[in-house]
Design a binder for these strands. Structure first.
Lengths: 219, 219
DNA sequence: TAATGTTTTAAACAAGTGATTGAATTTGCT
DNA sequence: AGCAAATTCAATCACTTGTTTAAAACATTA
């Protein structure tokens, strides 16, 4: 058996709690209580709390990056670099995110928490782990995104990627809390889909916008 | 007794540490050690750690919102709602952020941590405190932003504001860490200024982008 | 069945957290 | 100066964190 019953229960409980509260805020006692297992089970099966997080990280990042890789191959985007326009590239990204979310309805938030942890918090370990493991897999996609963006220098593109990531991560992180306040939980999956789609024309316009040199001298 | 020497030292140390590490990650022992005061001083002068955070919150949010209020008055934007175009509104926002940063070079990051805490973490107390205290002051600015955006429904605008906030918060949160890695700390203030200005055309295009009818039948 | 390896359990550990106390000290005022 | 209020201080409290331990229970297999 590749994965014991207890380990599976821990992963499920941790996924839900991490997605809802974040990694640091979630304690091992919460996880094990929710999972109905002993406190020591996490250390026994995953070595440490960090080990549990990394285990979950692979679980979500792998299908995500593979989905993007596969999509690019299917659509021959790697041969013809102009076959996919900006809107289509972004929609592909959104589809990849939703694909991750199909495994469980917490997956997307878990995924977001991971990036949040890797980029917002000073968690250099996890950050390097993610980049080293999935950076090369995602590079072709980034390259395509670059080609469909407005003409700009490397550092300008670098920062625009941050703007895009910020929008996605921030919005999805917030969605959880906002949905509780608005109590419009009738159809979470469809609602997330709608928000992600709202981003496409906005981010597309942003990436294609001409960088205005006027501002650099004005302030 | 407007502010004792000890309280001032605590505020300075807390500002630097909070900006660098975040609120939860920074302990009272770190702050008091850095400030060269006794551990109990925080509770004596601010009641609690949360009291210290709220005190700092006011210290930064007040000049920020007042700067925006004042700028709108000076430029007669409240009388003529079309006097300021989208780019100018966003530049005004960036100027307000930089204005806050003039008091100290940690101010902008502190400011960002505050919004991060209020929006990303489930800190309902601070969230309501901020909205209740500064929401009404910033409403005129939001209204102007709305008027200069593409025609859209309320919820669409609501989410686009999130996209913008996400870009700003995420990018500024990241800047601190990235600048350490790139060790290009030659001129922090100018570098932040450059990044903020990079956002203007991107965010401007995003807010003015037409919502794609393919995804929404309502608009 | 008996022995062996694996898993679960309750309890405790070590290290941290923010908050509180009461005595010592400093300060401000008449 | 002297007294009262304000402030500082070391010590400690009550509590939480992730982790470890060693015995108990379970599972597997020879």
């Amino acid at each position: 058996m590749a994965q014991s019953k207890t380990a599976k229960q821990i992963l499920d409980a941790a996924e839900a709690l991490f997605a809802e509260q974040g990694f640091i805020e979630t304690t091992m006692r919460q996880i094990t209580k929710e999972a109905g297992v002993n406190l020591a089970a996490i250390n026994y099966h995953f070595g440490s709390k960090q080990g549990l997080i990394q285990s979950l990280a692979e679980h979500f990042l792998k299908p995500f990056s593979e989905y993007i890789e596969q999509s690019l191959i299917e659509r021959d985007a790697l041969l013809d670099s102009s076959s996919l326009k900006m809107d289509e590239l972004l929609e592909l990204l959104m589809r990849a995110l939703l694909h991750v979310n199909q495994e469980s309805n917490h997956a997307l938030l878990m995924f977001t928490r991971l990036l949040e942890l890797a980029y917002l918090k000073s968690q250099e370990d996890l950050r390097l782990f993610i980049i080293g493991r999935y950076g090369s897999k995602l590079k072709p996609y980034i390259d395509l995104l670059r080609k469909q963006s407005a003409l700009m220098e490397d550092d300008e593109f670098f920062w625009r990627l941050h703007f895009v990531m910020g929008s996605v991560i921030f919005t999805l992180s917030n969605y959880n809390m906002l949905s509780q306040i608005e109590k419009s939980k009738f159809d979470t999956q469809a609602e997330i889909e709608r928000i992600l789609h709202r981003m496409i024309p906005v981010l597309s316009a942003g990436m294609q916008a001409r960088g205005d040199k006027l501002y650099f001298s004005r302030l």
